[in-house]
């Protein structure tokens, strides 16, 4: 389809590991096709070239952890027609949101010899806490096929086909044996959003929640099952408290098992 003008794509980074934007460069088979259909206007990890905004589509990776970043995201939102957050950091605060359960001064003092040089916020927060987000793509990291689907959908002004059901649905469809039923392995599959490609159960490992909470998850019921299997409160807390610890359903469940 010939376009009069190519849409402008921008990629922005906040606190993150770079893995989700790397997923775009990891679309080895699709990368040059995507690049041919958009103008890459801002993508520092891949190019020195910068085209001024406004942008048709902004992909935002990372969470907000500094006063400067809390300002910067508003500037990006103002220049972006559509803004999509990619990955657990941008959609839930990421692993760095573990600070939200602690005192930030303790953290700074523990890691840095000169705390006075560090300017950071007490909490790591997702992008939707700060600006309107048009779509959230989950995962730690995101799945590159889902990324291509979302970019494709937005450039063609249709809804992305990204399921919100649980990882269990994906697992059952693949024909894998349930690790929790057959082996008693703790698994977050029943409350985690599908989309990873059902990676862990076929390896004999329980889902560890990379894709964050599904739509309306019953975490309390699942945690009850874990406790019945003689799992300690600390272990249940930690299971819900990883890369998506800041996502409300996981946060609340982990706090329910906090022993003070």
């Amino acid at each position: 389809m010939a376009r009069a003008k190519k849409p402008k794509l921008a990629v922005w980074k906040f606190a993150s590991c770079d893995g989700c934007q790397l997923s775009l460069l990891d679309c080895e088979d699709e990368l040059l096709a995507v690049a041919a259909n958009v103008d890459i206007a801002h993508f520092p990890e891949a190019t020195r070239a910068v085209i001024a905004g406004p942008y048709d589509l902004s992909l935002v990776e990372g969470s907000i952890t500094t006063p400067d970043d809390a300002e910067r995201i508003h500037k990006i939102r103002r220049r972006s027609k559509r803004l999509i957050t990619i990955g657990a950091c941008a959609t839930a605060g990421g692993i760095q949101a573990l600070r939200n359960f602690a005192r930030i001064d303790d953290y700074i003092n523990y890691v840095y010899a000169r705390p006075e040089y560090i300017d950071t916020l007490a909490k790591s927060t997702p992008i939707h806490d700060h600006v309107w987000v048009d779509f959230e793509l989950r995962g730690c990291p995101i799945d590159r096929f889902q990324l291509v689907e979302v970019i494709n959908a937005f450039l063609n002004e249709r809804r992305p086909n990204i399921p919100r059901y649980s990882q269990c649905v994906e697992c059952k469809r693949s024909g894998a044996v349930c690790v929790m039923v057959s082996r008693g392995t703790l698994c977050l599959g029943p409350v985690t959003q599908a989309g990873c490609g059902n990676l862990c159960p076929p390896l004999g490992r329980g889902c560890y929640g990379c894709f964050g909470p599904m739509e309306a998850p019953n975490t309390m019921s699942l945690a009850g099952w874990f406790r019945e299997k003689d799992t300690s409160a600390d272990a249940v807390r930690d299971l819900f408290r990883t890369f998506n610890a800041g996502a409300a359903p996981f946060r609340k469940e982990s706090e329910a098992h906090e022993q003070r």
């Binding site: 906040f14 606190a15 993150s16 590991c17 770079d18 893995g19 989700c20 790397l22 952890t65 500094t66 970043d69 990421g94 692993i95 760095q96 573990l98 600070r99 602690a102 303790d106 953290y107 700074i108 523990y110 890691v111 840095y112 560090i118 950071t120 790591s124 730690c140 990291p141 560890y208 272990a235 930690d238 990883t242 890369f243």
Partner: peptide, 30 residues
């Protein structure tokens, strides 16, 4: 790059969680 405090929040976690948590320091060399 904003600090993410990995060393701080690893305290209290199980030894078995360190590989998956520290992988998230870097998406290029997990």
């Amino acid at each position: 790059e904003p600090p993410r405090f990995f060393e701080a929040f690893l305290r209290g976690r199980m030894y078995s969680e360190a590989p998956d948590i520290t992988a998230r320091i870097c998406g290029i060399c997990p």
